[in-house]
Write a protein that binds this DNA or RNA. Structure first.
Lengths: 106, 106
DNA sequence: CCGCATCCAGGATGATACTG
DNA sequence: CAGTATCATCCTGGATGCGG
């Protein structure tokens, strides 16, 4: 028989995840990347209201945690593409249900 | 044929939801209440690391948005119970997948 | 013009002490 | 027990600068 985890233990585990995902813009950035890779500027336009500084910061955070990958091209003007890793894409179900809730209740 | 919403529009919708749910502790509080109503002190113990001030604030925020209900009893010492509304309980699927992701990747 | 780094002011958060 | 009040600290937002 398995030792079933109680709520407190589960919350502690989710806390480590929310340390990464819990930023004000994190979910929206990931959601924006679900339908494919995007450039920095595209993300800035997609995530309405975010500012450059926070976008840089969140992207770096998500890259550090292997949720997305950054690819830079030495073009003029510079081109940087961001796309989700498997780990990041695995949040699709969570996002889908969060969006469903939004439509149902907001 | 329906006018299919694009990503930007969906993000804007989700933004209103995340204004409510996006707090640092919000998801954890809701998760703690998924298995039934809890008293203030029980929540404080369940959500490890939170402090009184933030718990009060988040609970008020979630109550204002009809995600949970607050019931006070005029006992000594005072008793206050918090429990999810239908709106709040509808986040269960989102939470479940978020926890699954946590277990899979953290 | 794009992708970012830096600087500064205001708001959010955390720790602690106190009340009914 | 269930909060309030207070203050130090961290984080966010907006403006600006700069190399490529």
């Amino acid at each position: 028989m398995e030792a079933k985890k109680n709520t407190v233990e589960k919350i502690c585990e989710m806390q480590t995840a929310l340390d990464i995902l819990g930023g004000k813009w994190t979910f929206l950035i990931i959601y924006a990347l679900l339908d494919g890779k995007k450039r920095f500027k595209e993300l800035e336009r997609a995530v309405t209201g975010i500012n450059t500084r926070m976008l840089v910061k969140e992207l770096k955070n998500l890259e550090d945690h292997q949720i997305l990958t950054r690819t830079a091209f030495a073009t003029v003007p510079p081109t940087v593409e961001y796309s989700l890793t498997d780990k990041g894409r695995d949040l699709e179900a969570t996002m889908k249900y969060l969006y469903k809730w939004t439509k149902d209740w907001m």
